[in-house]
Each structure stands twice: as C-alpha cells, then as structure tokens.
Design a protein around this nucleic acid. Sequence first.
DNA 1: CATCACGCTGTTTTT
DNA 2: CAGCGTGATG
Length: 721
Amino acid sequence: MPDKIDYASVLNPAQLEAVTTLEGPVLVIAGAGSGKTRTLIYRVARLVETGVDPESILLLTFTRKASQEMLERAAGLADPRCRFVSGGTFHSLAHRVLRGHAERIGYDNAFIILDRSDMEEIIHSLVPELRMPKGTPRFPKRSTLANILSKAANLQVPLEPFMASEYAQFIEFVGPIETLDALYARYKKLNQMMDYDDLIINFRRLLEENEDIRHDLGLRYLYIMVDEYQDTNAIQADIVKWLGQGHRNVMAVGDDCQAIYSFRGADYRNMFEFPERFPNARVLKLEENYRSTQPILTFTNALMAPALEQYTKCLYTKREGGEPPKVVDTRTEPEQALYVARRIKDEMGRGRPITDFAVLFRAGYHSFELEAELTRQGMPYVKYGGFKFLESAHIKDFLAHLRVLASRDDAVSWVRILRLIKNVGRARTHAVIQWLKESRAPLQQVDQWPGAGKRLSGFKPLAELFSSLSAKGVTPKAAADQVMAYYVPFLEARFDDHPRRRKELDQLITMAGRYKKLRGFLDDLTLEPPASSKDLGAGDAGETLTLSTVHSAKGLEWPVVFIIWVMEGRFPPGHAFNDPMSLEEERRLMYVAATRAKDRLIMCYPGQEFVPSWSSCGSGAGHRNGLSSFIRGIPPDVLSHEAAGARFGETITEPWQGGHAGVRGGAEPGAGDLASGDRVRHPAFGPGVISRFIGDDKVEVFFRNAGRKLLHLEYTTLEKM
DNA sequence: CATCACGCTGTTTTT
DNA sequence: CAGCGTGATG
C-alpha cells in the first residue's frame, strides 16, 4: 500500500476543498486545465481511503476511456482498489440497469442496442412507407432524419416547433417526419430495439416510475461524481437527480465555456440548475490553470470575453514566459497543409518529439488535405474523430454475420450479409428476410431460402458457415474466426486495400477473444467503441502525430497545438449557422481547441475566399473561408497575425488591421447590493453598467470593452464602482 | 431482377 | 468526394 497521501501538498486550496468535501451535493466549476481530472482522481482516492467501498462510488464520464484512465491513475497513485470504482458513461449505466429491468418498461431483457448507423438504416428503410409522391425534391437524407429525430427526443420537444426553429429548411416535411417518428418507434418496439436515445430516456422512465429501483440504486451507488456536467442534457440531469435523491452525495464537475454538445441536446444551463435540484449545494471554482502559458490564457480569455452568455471564472496561471499564439493566413488549403507539415518538421529538427504535436479541427474532413501531405512526406499520424472506425464497410459487413447470431431477425444485418452475394439484390434480400421472419427456421437451412438452390450457388458457403456456427457453445472468438474465413474472399474482391482492412478485422477478433458471450462483445462495441483502429490495442503504431477533431480532443493536452479552421459561410437558407447560438458554440469549440495547448498555439486558416474543392467548398456557391469574427477582433499583442504563402521561406507579414475587443485584467471581488444603472467592474471584463435584472439572480451588464453579458450573480464577482 | 453508368447535391461534431 | 436515386442494359 502506498504512503498516505498528503492532500494539502499536492492540491491547491480549491481543489483540496473539492477533494475533502465528501458528503452532500457539490458543484465544481472547473476551468480548462485547472486540474479537474486530478481533483476527481484524488477525491476517489480519498473516498476509498476513508473506507468507502469502491464499488459504491459511481463515476460518470462521457467516454469510457476517460473513466478508465482516471481510475487507473487513482489506483496507481493511491489505492489499487480504486480500479473497482464503478465507472462509465450514462449510456453504459443505463444499459446495465435496463438489462435487468427491461420488463418494467415493456421490453424483453434481451433487447438489442442500435448504434447510429443502425438507426439511420432503419429510418431509411421506413421512408418508403411514407408514400411520398415520386420525385419529391429535397426530402432530408437519412443522416439528417436521424439527427432531427434524435435531437427532438433528447430535447423532449414536439417535432413541429423544434423543426420550425432548427430545421426550417425542411419544415414542409413535418407531417411525413412525424409519421416517420411514429413508424420508427413502432419498429423498435416490435423488434425489441433501443437506440442511444432510448437507453437514456427509458432509464429515466425506469427511475421515475419505480421507487424500488431508485431505492436499490441509491444503496448501490452511495457517492456519485459526474464529469463534464455541462454536456449533460435535461434527461441526464434528471437521472442524476434520481440517483442522488436519497443520500445527496453528488458531485457535478464542469465548465460552461466548454459546452460543445448542444447538437445532441446538451444544455450547459444544467450546471446552474444544479443548486436548485440539490439545495444547499456547495459551489466551488477552480480557476488556476496548470496547463498553458499566460499568453495562451490571455488569448483564450479574450476569445471568450465577448461571448453572449457566460457565468463563470477567469483563468490565470503562475507559469512564467511563453510566446503569444499566432494566427496565420495560409491562403489556400494545400498551402495550409504544407505549412503545418513544415512547421512540425522544423520543430522536430529542434529536438521536439513528434508526440508533442497535435493538429485539431472542427470536422473530420477538414484534415483531408493535411493527411495527403503527411502521407507524401512519410510522417506517421493517427486520426481521432470524424469517420468512425466501426462504420467502415468491412467492419460493418463482418459484424453483421455475428449480429444475426445474437439476434436472428436483425434485418439491417441481413441486408449487409445478403448483398455481398452475387445476383442478390433488393427483391431477393427482402424475400429472404421475410421468409426468415415467418418460418422461424434455423439459420443453417439456407438451402430452403427463397431463390436458393438452382442458379444461386452463392448461398452455399453461407449455409456452411451457419451450420458450423450453430453448434452449441461456440465462443465469440471461434465464431469470429469462422466469419473471417467466410468473409475474406468478399473482402479481397471488394477492396483494393484489403491487407489493411484484414489487419483491423484480426484485431477485432482478438478483442472478441476477451468475451464469453457474443452479446456482451457486440454491446460493448456499440456502447464503448474504439475511437480508432489504434485503440484496438494490438500492434501499437509507435510514435505518431495526433490529428483529431476538437470533440475527440476534449480533456487532452499537447505541448504544441495547431488548429486548422475553416469557417464555412454559405449554407442553405435557414441553416443553423445563421443562428447566433451556433456561432457561440463555434466560439466555445475554438476555446476548447485552444486550451489544449501547453506551450505553443498556432492557428491557421485558408484565407482565400472561395476554394473549388469539396473539402472546403460546397455546391457551386462555394464556401467562404476565413476567420470567425471572434478571432478577427483580437488585437495583435494578444494574438499575432501573420500571412504565409506557399513559399513561406519568404513569409509575408502583413500589418494587422482589425477592430478592437478587450479583456483587461482583474480587480478583487467585492460585495454589496446591486441595482440597475450601477457602475460595476468585473475581474475579466472590466468596467460596465448594469442594464437590468433578470429574475433576481441574473443581471445583464454592458461592459465598455466586452459588450453585453448575461451574468449569474451567484457565480460572478462584480465589484461596485 | 441485378447491375452499372450517370447526374445531382451538399454541416459538422458523438454516446 | 461520396452517397443517393434514376434509367438503360444484361
């Protein structure tokens, strides 16, 4: 057992208070890089140290990776028993509980979980039932339909008003989409399926309606911690409320400035409602930053200063020195790729390892050009986010064969399986699925399928596969091996790069070897999927550069961070980007990206207005590249502005021309009664005037340098002047 | 009935 | 680029 921890020597006072306040509700408002993870780790250690059973501690995070890493660290530094803390995502907890009590909400305990692509395919397959007149123009495509239904479900709002405000371009289709929603719900119920949203919604319902389950869970999880609380939605907040209702030992940790999941219904206002849900909650703020240099923090403070609505803190560091971040106009995308690659090579020449760098961007496809350049230069990289590893065709094909073993009538998987076979198209696929449903015959009777025999010799290998798989007690590993043997010919015929894909499938099989039950393997893949092929573990790719979407980079840090930014200016009418709130999310996204940097931050953007390639440009009209207004307004002493052409051996530095925006440093917090018209000073935003009160806990203030703000008095320090 | 060539269209991020 | 629907061809 390691030595007893001297908490006061490893934590700052705010962190210490968070760690040692074990009983009762606590809200921790934790700025980026403020040692939030560290605090959670020590708190887990502390709880275990005081004799709390690790299994009765629940740590809810947004990714399983995050919770695993946290618990590993806690186990390493304090008590190995920390490994047994119950950790996971809302979805995995919901799954665990629902598996035991599905009958309470009218489901079978063997229900199937649908991932996003399953959801899309089912929705797509239901569209014909809407009987839309042929050639209906611009009916949303399946991914859009899934987005609409999913978000409305998460926000718990009726489709009509929701679409009117967020999908105005499709409002003409509300009727059909409402029907589709009902069809989809019926289909799921009929086939014992739950999608991600259902897991959460049904979990809440289970808690709401069943006092005994609430009671049991209350005893099971005596201490609850929720990380990234700003990214929870209203339903998840309810779940936390129900789980913590009895003992009230709930700690929520989050940062409203890092709220970047509103697209799936998350609402950072949950943070400010926490004290209402848990009266007398202790509110703690972590404001000291341990990650970045002061110039980087000065920039991020300036970035957030004009944000329309925010409530919290002001970051500072004791770290000395550092260079101001830089924004570079690279003119075009190819030049941007060249610029980033060369800068990294330069720095590596000066002795930095490649693992010191990360390149971040908003959307997966924003890195295409860079990936091409890195490949040309032979620079190894791993990309996180964007395209899903599990959504690539070969993985889906492969898993489909396993999935029908676990759930025989999984129509989505059957479509994949059957379409591989020559001379099987829509009609025959449909016939076979229908037959399977009605006959209830064992799978290996493939030769009786409609259309089998005669010309369709393609069914034979499939028959053999299923007859060997139907043997009793086939392990997931054995099943996967056999599917592999069957699938390889298709793989080789279909993909030029089959060797690479085969390796990935081999890794998947290795993973299957860790499971006793096929269902468990498939569920884990759905709920806690590997983020990239590298995450599968086997055969580490070695020293590589990291490319990542901002969403996937959350919680991580690197010494040198490059951000490539494409501000897309032209979208269809009614598009969300016309909405100021979306722009605000874009701002927070930029904030999350920038606060990943420890020492150096370089942002670049292809400034040329219209680029005729799809990676940055849309149909005909073209997308407008360039800096968002909230970057453009930042003065050169905070963010140095630069332009670089292709031959930036001759870097052109242009004088900065822009407006002004300001964040000036802080005064000490003060107290006193406030009223409309009062002149006040905010530590980050400087002098301002209170324009009005909203309720009695919010004020609207006009700051001379930072414009209009909505401030929560409870979380803000305003000094009367 | 399956397949293929062609033209059209276009937000994104994840559990 | 890529996913989708359409209409001609085998």
